[in-house]
Design a binder for these strands. Structure first.
Lengths: 345, 345
DNA sequence: AATTAGCACTCTGCCTGATCGAGTGCTAAT
DNA sequence: ATTAGCACTCGATCAGGCAGAGTGCTAATT
């Protein structure tokens, strides 16, 4: 099926894809004929297109309409034919403004970037921050929040702050809390959260033999706070952009499915999951994407990192008929920009 | 124009509104005639409807179609005709689940409620938490976040936690920070954030005369952290529900405007602003709502409070053709539920 | 052997006119 | 004051016709 194409076939496929990306209409042989570098008549193009259809790269919505690329066609295009366009310097400049003044917290940076990217690309932009847990703890503090609640504040390497409320029966004096605090800090600093959890588990086992009440309490509070791991933050910007796409506006069912997906955090997480670990950009086209029930969207995503470790991923969600040659460099650049901004914190 | 109606006129208006809410189609005289308690022929109904049209309560999309209520018509209906339906006990039960187990933080409660309300009503639900600043501080803590950043964590009365990063040149020893901490706490506890800001401003003026370096530092950090006031959190759930409404699906322009509004925090804040202070439910119909450019939506909202002071508001956003008799009790009950849950924290 | 001109064919989009039905407004009868 | 009757209007729906875009196939051309 997905054989390698000769030069002409490749050029025709490329032109069909690009025209379809631009117009969202089926593309006819005449149109391609005019665009070909080598002058060929529509009739010849028709033959070539028929071949491409046989190979599964194109299809016809109905007899005697032009052709549109299939998922496989887009895939071939992205893999082999895409002329990676240079990022416009204006776009680059604009994006660099994420480093703007008032932005202090790391998650503000990420959010900012997402908003910008959605504006530039005219697609919905999703950022996931899911790897807090890979960052080492810089400090951990327990604060009294109310008589029966304690607040744990964790500051991670690189500007991330997380807090959690823990329920606890009252009866802990302030100085005791402080003691517990320093116990925990001693144990925690330099570890990642999962490492800390492990450590606490171990200590708890040992601690049965010892009799330090506060130490036991410290371990207990720690394990409570770390009981469920944090699934990660998801921010979506530019949802309204999906209405720019005629294919979505014309089909309310698709629209519904997409908007619903946006409301489910874990759907989004699954969509961007594969991008997380790798540096390279990921493109999943239509049915390729890991979420069933969303066969009409493509996701272009890339992980970003902080120092050595992966932090999360950023991606654009749009129709299969995306302008990959523009969108891929955009996402790529934004992700690397994020990484470099986050590095210096 | 908006005169008081006699019994018959009122009943006709009510029936038209209710039928239109149900069907989203223009309502004809025959339909009303059949539904009237007092048996009247379509012809008579037509006369009455013509009167109602003259008074501005109804209008015809075109000659020889049925009639639909105008904004004023809906307003009259909501003010005088609405039979406030009892809340289904199943709905009530479901809503009470917000008190469910694992929910510890106050904002989780709020979010939970919002999600439930959007599911029950099949509309988009918005919650605003904007009155942190009315809550007294329970404690305030400064933590070292990195060499040049300090984290301020404020725990407010009633389970709200806020943190802010402040940039600061390095050079503060840990014990100095702790000293500053206790200065601030002494000053802050029991005050609201704006009160604290005021107080700090005052102290700063006085402090010029004195020479305590740390105290000055404390004031400086405090004023930095409180420089811009927190605008408030906005959560929106059930955006996809707006696609349930035929009037929005048929007109992409409306859809775009609404989705865009959802992306602008301050638009949402303005929409729900009036509900904030008052206990009573607010209904703003179509062009009545405080945001221009959204003449096709209605907002049903209510403030919720914590103890004495207003905390925020919760509301549903839907088409003008909303089922007010169902939606109003829903919002009302949810708001009061929120208030009572928040009270006990 | 590859390309292309020519042609018949198919399908969509769009316009037109006809018909149907729902609903109205008016008038005259009750 | 109410209503029956009637003419009228307008939207929705459907069939028919036409134009245009595009195809596939075949036979001629290079």
């Amino acid at each position: 099926m997905t054989a390698v194409l000769d030069d002409r076939g490749a050029q025709v496929l490329r032109l069909v894809v690009e025209d379809y990306i631009e117009t969202a209409e089926p593309v006819g042989s005449r149109t391609i004929s005019k665009k070909m570098s080598q002058a060929l008549s529509p009739a010849t193009i028709r033959n070539i297109m028929a071949d491409l259809e046989e190979m599964g790269y194109l299809c016809q919505p109905h007899t005697s309409a032009g052709r549109i690329p299939t998922g496989t066609g887009f895939r071939y295009y992205v893999n082999y034919l895409l002329a990676r366009r240079q990022l416009a310097s204006s776009d680059r400049d604009l994006l660099q403004k994420v480093t703007g003044e008032g932005v202090v917290g790391a998650d503000e940076v990420v959010r900012h970037a997402s908003r910008l990217l959605s504006n530039l690309s005219r697609h919905a932009c999703v950022v996931v921050i899911s790897r807090f847990s890979h960052q080492a703890l810089r400090s951990i503090s327990l604060l009294r929040a109310s008589t029966d609640k304690i607040l744990l504040v964790a500051v991670l390497q690189g500007g991330w702050v997380q807090h959690r409320l823990i329920e606890d029966e009252p009866g802990l004096a302030t100085d005791e809390l402080e003691k517990i605090n320093s116990y925990l800090n001693e144990m925690a600093v330099g570890l990642t959260l999962p490492q800390l959890r492990m450590r606490i588990m171990n200590e708890m086992r040992k601690e049965k033999a010892r009799y330090d009440r506060l130490m036991r309490k410290a371990l207990m509070l720690g394990s409570k706070a770390l009981a469920e791991s944090h699934p990660g933050e998801v921010y979506i910007e530019g949802r309204a952009n999906i209405l720019e796409q005629p294919e979505f506006v014309e089909d309310v069912q698709k629209l519904k499915r997409i908007l619903h997906a946006f409301e489910e955090k874990n759907v989004i997480l699954r969509l961007l999951d594969s991008a997380l670990e790798s540096e390279a950009i990921q493109v999943s086209i239509g049915t390729e994407n890991p979420v069933e029930g969303l066969p009409d969207i493509s996701v272009v995503s890339s992980g970003y990192h902080q120092g050595e470790s992966a932090m999360g991923s950023i991606g654009l969600i749009g129709p299969v008929r995306m302008d990959y040659s523009r969108v891929i460099p955009l996402v790529e650049y934004t992700a690397s920009l994020l990484s470099s901004i986050l590095e210096h914190r």
